[in-house]
Design a protein around this nucleic acid. Structure first.
Lengths: 131, 131
DNA sequence: AATGAAAACAGTAATCACTACTATTTTTGG
DNA sequence: CCAAAAATAGTAGTGATTACTGTTTTCATT
């Protein structure tokens, strides 16, 4: 296996992601990290996000909007996609991994895991009735 | 609202989709429908799949693999993405929409629905230990 | 500190799924 | 039969992501 070497760019990306709770996309991360590191390239952002996700340091989220979102909080929790503002917010709720057993009950193959996310309206969009 | 007109192409697409239980992608549908209707264009396939999905005649599935899958079975059921063969199979299991209440319990916004799918190994890939 | 191979980089080109556009063909109510 | 609306084929464009390439950075070993 290839030895991982340190990189300032990867540090910047991870550090920025840890300050955000809104699960930004690669493009948002790129635009922000560029303020501190103007010469960073978009390809570097993508490559490092993939490296970090493969290494378990961050999570890659598929929220059904055609763009990958990233989360530096790797503890188990769930997400909601706001259909009004397009944002992604955390959802504190009890663990629902028991759905895996329910899925496995009448299935011949092997159920390794599940992906669950919610959609609706975030609290901020509920307040501002701008929609 | 625009009056829907009949189209042979839309018929072919829906008819083909009803013969398949593996939730094909637009591209797979295109290649197959083209055997009966060689002049159909890929854009027509995409447009009609969207029309049919908006009309509730089929379902558009997001299985996290970056490609939309389509299902002519609109009854409530779940799906598993096979990590070995990349296929999508049906999963008969009890309804788990109660997760919506669990999600809403400690949430200030509004939870409209959820997306849940499973991943693992389909029964066919379990049998053939080719992997 | 010097060195050299592996890793990472910036910048750009390419890919892939999908959507938009346009001139032509089909459908359908009257 | 006829014309307006809808749909089509074919092509061009878009947006997110990946691949490629020559250069720079990292770092274990000297």
């Amino acid at each position: 296996m290839a030895a991982r070497k340190h990189s300032r760019q990867r540090d910047s990306i991870l550090q920025f992601l840890m300050t955000r709770k809104d699960h930004p996309t690669a493009d948002i991360i790129y635009m922000n990290v560029r303020q501190r590191n103007p010469s960073i390239s978009l390809g570097t952002v993508y490559r490092n996000l993939t490296l970090l996700a493969e290494n378990g340091e961050i999570k890659r989220l598929n929220m059904g909007d055609g763009v990958d979102h990233f989360d530096a909080d790797t503890s188990p929790h769930y997400h909601l996609f706001c259909e009004k503002c397009g944002g992604v917010v955390d959802l504190k709720m009890e663990d629902i991994d028991s759905v895996i057993e329910k899925a496995a009950a009448h299935f011949d193959g092997h159920v390794a895991g599940h992906v669950t996310y919610f959609y609706g309206t975030c609290s901020r969009c509920m307040e501002s009735g701008d929609f």
